[in-house]
Amino acid sequence: MADITHPDKREDEGESRRDFLYLATAATGAVGLAAFAWPLIDSMNPAADTLALASIEIDLSPLTVGQSITVTWRGKPVFIRRQTPEEIEAAKAVDVATLRDPQTYDERTINPEYLVMVGVCTHLGCIPLGQKPSDPKGNYNGWFCPCHGSHYDTAGRVRQGPAPANLEVPPYEFIEDARIRIG
């Protein structure tokens, strides 16, 4: 006798086989898409050398009162100055209402003894003078941009000239008493 399968049973087997093929095809496509997309997405992450420049740590313990250093962060000079008590007093005594870009000294510092700011003039991106003892300090005993004549006070605030804003304070934190992390 011939084996006769019920027509409904064959139809059920065909549907379940078709469903399996659809799922297997979709799963293979999803895995293939992920295998293609992952390297593409991963290539958009910053390179290791870029991440290394994203933050730097600086030991401030060698700085004596009144001394300045310049470090490089993200390709820009960062001025770090251990302020003298006279510089701190002069910066705090300024009437903030008279400033073009009003900021108090305390708003610009975490520890009043150390001033940390990006050493790029906010007018056209020049590097102001004032880090070395022999540099001209400008009319406010801070920093002076000789290119266009901007004068900054002992807190890095613009006081005279074409610069529209104060010298930028980068994001930084004290990780120890005399050690900071910029970035």
Rank of each mutant, 00 (worst) to 15 (best):
M1S: 14
M1G: 14
A2W: 11
A2I: 13
D3H: 06
T5I: 03
P7K: 02
P7A: 04
D8V: 07
E11R: 02
E11T: 01
G14T: 01
S16R: 14
R17G: 03
R18V: 01
F20L: 09
F20A: 08
L21T: 11
L21D: 10
Y22L: 03
A24G: 13
A24S: 13
A24H: 13
T25P: 07
T25M: 10
A26N: 03
A26Y: 03
A27C: 03
A30Y: 11
A30Q: 11
L33N: 05
A35P: 03
F36V: 14
W38C: 15
P39G: 01
D42R: 15
D42I: 15
D42A: 15
S43Y: 14
S43W: 14
S43P: 14
M44D: 06
M44A: 06
N45F: 12
A47D: 02
A48Q: 08
A48Y: 00
L53Q: 07
A54L: 02
A54K: 02
S55E: 00
I56S: 10
D59L: 08
D59W: 06
P62L: 10
T64V: 00
T64A: 02
T64C: 00
V65R: 12
Q67L: 11
S68K: 09
I69G: 13
T70G: 07
T72I: 11
G75R: 07
K76N: 07
P77R: 08
V78Q: 07
V78E: 07
F79Q: 03
F79H: 06
R81M: 12
R81F: 11
E87F: 02
I88T: 01
I88N: 00
I88D: 00
E89K: 10
A91W: 00
K92L: 05
A93F: 01
V94T: 01
D95K: 02
V96K: 04
A97M: 13
T98Y: 05
T98C: 10
T98N: 08
L99I: 08
R100M: 09
D101L: 12
T104H: 04
R108S: 07
T109V: 14
I110Q: 14
P112N: 14
Y114V: 04
V116A: 01
V118L: 12
G119M: 00
V120A: 11
V120S: 11
T122F: 03
L124A: 09
G125Y: 09
G125K: 10
C126M: 08
P128Q: 01
K132W: 11
K132L: 13
P133V: 03
P133G: 00
G138R: 15
N141P: 06
N141R: 02
F144T: 05
F144K: 11
P146A: 15
C147T: 10
C147S: 09
C147R: 10
H148E: 08
G149M: 05
S150H: 03
S150Q: 01
H151K: 13
H151G: 12
T154C: 06
T154K: 05
R157E: 13
R159D: 04
P164N: 12
N166G: 04
L167I: 09
L167R: 04
L167V: 08
L167H: 00
V169G: 14
P170D: 15
P171W: 14
P171D: 15
Y172S: 07
E176F: 14
E176K: 15
R181H: 04
I182N: 06
I182Q: 05
